[in-house]
Amino acid sequence: MSVGHVQRAIESAGIPTVGVYVSAFGHVPAQMGVARALITPHPMGRPMGAPGDAERHLAVVRHALSLLERDTDQVIESFPDGYRPHSPTTV
């Protein structure tokens, strides 16, 4: 909820925003009326992906930022790929 309030305040000040929410809080963007949100199927505390999974972090941020240029009142999308724990030994 905290970020929902911050997101609304920043939009109200004239700056576009996008939030990345884990699926456990996937209901928050619609409930709180935030302009743009990407929902990731990741566990709480790791909205970008597993530690060390730089490829996933980049894909999530890229997807989220792309929503900034959508010309719709509210856009809430889900990241398409499932969570993948990252083992340092598989780097």
Partner: peptide, 18 residues
């Protein structure tokens, strides 16, 4: 906080709730 960002001439914000 929103006013700080506006004063700093930020064009967009990525927000990450945990």
């Amino acid at each position: 906080w929103a006013e700080i960002l506006r004063a700093e001439q930020v064009d967009a914000v990525l927000l990450v709730p945990v």
